[in-house]
Design a protein around this nucleic acid. Sequence first.
DNA 1: CCGACTTATTTCGCGTTGTGATTTAACTCG
DNA 2: CGAGTTAAATCACAACGCGAAATAAGTCGG
Lengths: 418, 418
Amino acid sequence: MAERVMRTVRDLRRSNRSLLLRRLYFDGPLSRQDLIDTTTLSAASVSNVVGDLIGDGLVAEVGSVGSEGGRPRILLQVDCPRWHAIGVDVGETRVLVELFTLDLAVLAREEYPLPDGCRDVAAVVDRIDSGLRGVLAAGAVRQETIIGVGVGVPGVVAHSPELGAVVHGQTIGWDAVPLERLLREAGGVRAHLPLYIDNGATTLGQAEMWFGAGRGARDAVIALIGSGVGACVVVDGAPYRGTGRSAGEWGHTTVQVGGRSCRCGARGCLEAYVGAEAVIERFREVGPAGSPSGPPAEASEEGALAAILAAQERGEPAAAAVLEETAVYLGVGVANLINLFNPERIALGGWAGLLLGARLLPRVREVAREYALRHAFANVELSLCQLGPDAVARGAATLPVAGFLAAGSRPPRNQSAS
Amino acid sequence: MAERVMRTVRDLRRSNRSLLLRRLYFDGPLSRQDLIDTTTLSAASVSNVVGDLIGDGLVAEVGSVGSEGGRPRILLQVDCPRWHAIGVDVGETRVLVELFTLDLAVLAREEYPLPDGCRDVAAVVDRIDSGLRGVLAAGAVRQETIIGVGVGVPGVVAHSPELGAVVHGQTIGWDAVPLERLLREAGGVRAHLPLYIDNGATTLGQAEMWFGAGRGARDAVIALIGSGVGACVVVDGAPYRGTGRSAGEWGHTTVQVGGRSCRCGARGCLEAYVGAEAVIERFREVGPAGSPSGPPAEASEEGALAAILAAQERGEPAAAAVLEETAVYLGVGVANLINLFNPERIALGGWAGLLLGARLLPRVREVAREYALRHAFANVELSLCQLGPDAVARGAATLPVAGFLAAGSRPPRNQSAS
DNA sequence: CCGACTTATTTCGCGTTGTGATTTAACTCG
DNA sequence: CGAGTTAAATCACAACGCGAAATAAGTCGG
């Protein structure tokens, strides 16, 4: 019963504009002829639609490809430098605002620390608003070229008809914060500028799908391991969110009935074994308390995890044991993803995932092979994420870009003197 | 980069035909006015499209609804008795062929036992072919009214451009059987009659989604427990299959690292705890070997499982312990589904699932609440399947019906004298 | 029983779309 | 420089959905 977005003959054109625009964006540059061959559109229609796109400044002709006795094909490309998107990463310790061109190259960035976490909503909104104005000024970019703003937040994002996007962030103490309304009231986001708010892990996954380890895959899982453990499940090219938008809670799937206690209250969660916090704790339990080889209490989790890896490097058996166990649980978790989702690709990311993965990936793959069904395992590619843990803002910026490509249109004109 | 099925203005009409047809099929009877109100189509278009549908014999006017001072609304309905679909269930012990009207009411059925399992492909094809001819004769139905044939098989179904649907069935010894080609060659399926072949668990899930426990849900999981354990994951109203079409292998997700051995070769699989075979085996291990209260070795798995339930009923501690453990593992498995998929609905089915669920569902729900994240658990409805374990054929018949509704058209005319 | 009123459905003219056929443009090669 | 070749644009046409207007089919009050 999916409501069609396709009724009038005009929507048909929009759909075809979008089709050509997407192909040019992801696979460009291409000639009109390439478009004719690879889409089912007729030559006449391609010519018409491309003409419109060029007229609207979305596409530009760029050089031509040599011919062998005929008229050369003119190459077309989306005019990426002309349009801009903004991505915002609301982290637990800082707000990052970045200005991108349409192909998501960074033009400007502003970063604001959040000393007391982001519990104070007004402060966060204020930082985001300053950041927006800041990057616009720094990039010397006109508002009219901005196609939209994407925001990645650490929480579940629901949508209500009146308030727009509403954020529920258990870890940062946000309870039903109407972030969309607050941001619009702050004024930095023009009234009719598209504003997309989504979970930060999802936007990171989206970034990996477009530009990183997930590139080209239809069905994939981006597994994110930080202090906690989550996953961005991509089905048919788009993140799958579930009914309450909280799908992908990989970290709280049980891999050991009656196992270690997890901070979620349950026992035997995957996160209780492979999350950074859990790995560090397990090492503390097993490892030498006041060992001279490593600082007994690292200031940061990053440091502590690095210390464990270093200890293993030096051949300390306690570290090796903890990491081996971690690899086994991680492999089991990955196998579960393989068996349930049968994805084309699985990428391990998050700061801890990258740190651990660099060392443990071969062993994780080995364990996953043991636990996953043969057929499904044979069809999956397991790798590390490629964009680093700071791609949340870039991922957030993919949201307006995706909207832009789907609509196949320039941003709505801002009405003067209304 | 999904290829649009929408290019010309004619496809637009097809899409709108399909939209109205689907609404009438699932929510009918409805008046034209209802359609105008609920589908963004204009009155003029609704009138035109409905006129076409009536002209093609797909829709019929059926009575009218009382008015209050104006012209009464004429009620429309899909002309279900006029069209037919066939569903085939290829089970491990028998082939079942059923003839349905478009609303999937049974008109005729033929059942053929398969004494030696369905290893002999030719025998199976022969039985299906006989069944097709049989139900057509028994139902006294003309070939032209058949919109298609759906077949549910116990295996993974791949699609190749040359051979059509190819079945890989590990449990029945089928290795790349080109069932589509074989069936077409047998002749019972006319050349241009749509033929859909899919995994039996998936078709069963589809049946539950349309007419059973999943009715009305967009995102759901139909969990099937028989001798083995599987699941049909429904995303956005359609079964999710994954890259290699083997998604939903819930039974082989690990819930106990280093736990019981599973027949898949891994350890700690969910199936090794809650599958019928596993439950029976666990009872044999724990229970009194030659207890006078129950037959020591039941002939069938159904009987053995029923005996365990009966033993618990009588207060035997061994049976109670095994079933309690089963409920815990089942609850954990369900919680994992909830956390990963965040579905709207989870239905427990399969012959063993229904048998166990009738007794254990409250306890399973309790355990799932403990292990699942609060938010996701609060949004899920956990119930038993409603159609029984024999709805595979009906589910298979939904495949051609879905195709019929999606295309919005009558089956292609069979060309005479070609 | 009639006429005003109300509501449902169909009809009509228009603007927009994609298409195939045709025309025009742009280049290579001898 | 002209024949040959391929790319892109143009044109006439048929089909579509839409808003407005016309028509159909009732109710209700008298």
